[in-house]
């Protein structure tokens, strides 16, 4: 069984440092996108890492959060924070409702149900095009926001906000994993029948984890909308679910810090690869195969390996 690290820990410091350095190394708009997708990938990291649930449907909650945030900003005149809270809440409620059904199935059936609901979400967006804008997306959203007297409009202030939101969610996940609730989730991941035998309401714990992950994905959707000033229909497409999963896998499942690493790697590498070859997704797939085969813990795992190697060498000296 994996040991639960103390919180906050070295990972917290590394993530914070990475967030500070990021806009100095890549354009601020790209850095914002990295922070947003990292937030979305945190929802996958929570489910897959803490509970061992493989979801192909996190894009659904991200998409719902995006549309709820977009509609509330545009039509209800809600402010930045209330709209984001509603985005997270919508993701939580939907994931909680669907989760109560999905968690009763295991393995491939669980995966297929998440996939099916994600597809339904996309077609619902197309079907209710008067509300969602269909495949044209939802536009006409406000482009400037004020937060505690600070204007959030230019790329750098936008990045500051996105990075701040990611860091708060990162801290929340670290806290959850280190909490008694997180210990029960870890126990479920390691041996579900034994947990049930011990009297834990496993389905409720799993539903709570799915709802929490849905809320985080919904928040990521809201952040994406605020960043773009527009709701792209791709936010609720199946490809978004795949993207979040791939980012979490590249970063290293079960490591919240890996979400940021995975997102940075995926976003920067895909940006570079797309300029080399139009079918760049095939190269990402090759990289993913390489990572799964030779670096099962993802990039975050590589960091651990390098630290361990360094520590061993130092001890020998």
């Amino acid at each position: 069984m994996r040991t639960v690290e103390r919180f906050p820990n070295l990972a917290t410091a590394i993530v914070l440092a990475a967030l500070v350095v990021l806009p100095l190394t890549v354009p601020a708009t790209l850095a914002s996108q990295i922070a947003i997708f990292a937030t979305g990938a945190l929802s996958v990291a929570l489910l897959l890492g803490a509970v061992g649930l493989l979801s192909f449907g996190q894009g659904l909650y991200l998409g719902v959060g995006a549309y709820v945030c977009g509609i509330l900003l545009r039509d209800a005149g809600l402010g930045l924070i209330p709209a984001l809270l509603m985005a997270a809440l919508s993701g939580t409620v939907l994931a909680g409702l669907l989760g109560s059904v999905i968690v009763r199935r295991h393995g491939v059936y669980f995966v297929m149900l998440t996939l099916a609901f994600a597809q339904m979400g996309y077609f619902a967006v197309l079907a209710f095009k008067n509300v969602t804008g269909g495949e044209n997306g939802l536009s006409g959203l406000p482009r400037q926001f004020d937060l505690l007297g600070f204007s959030i409009a230019d790329p750098l202030s936008m990045y500051g906000f996105m990075a701040g939101a990611f860091f708060l969610v990162f801290l929340l996940i670290q806290r959850v994993i280190a909490s008694p609730f997180g210990s029960v989730l870890a126990a479920i991941r390691e041996n579900e029948p034994r947990c049930e035998a011990l009297g834990y309401p496993v389905a409720r714990y799993k539903t709570a984890a799915v709802a929490l992950a849905g809320g985080i994905a919904g928040l990521a959707g809201g952040l994406h909308v605020i960043f773009l000033g527009f709701v792209p229909p791709s936010d609720i497409e199946l490809e978004m679910s795949q993207r979040l999963l791939v980012i979490a896998l590249i970063g290293g499942i079960g490591s919240p810090g890996g979400a940021l690493m995975g997102s940075a790697f995926y976003t920067i590498v895909s940006e570079a690869l797309s300029e080399i070859w139009p079918r760049w997704m095939a190269l990402i797939a090759l990289l993913l195969i390489g990572l799964v085969l030779f670096l099962p813990g993802g990039l975050w795992g590589a960091r651990r390996r390098i630290s361990a190697l360094f520590a061993r060498n130092t001890a020998h000296d």
Binding site: L30, Q33, G137, P155, H224, L228, F230
Partner: peptide, 12 residues
């Protein structure tokens, strides 16, 4: 092929 990506790149 992604409207979101197009908006981000135009912003940049």
């Amino acid at each position: 092929g992604d409207a979101g990506e197009a908006v981000r790149k135009v912003q940049e």
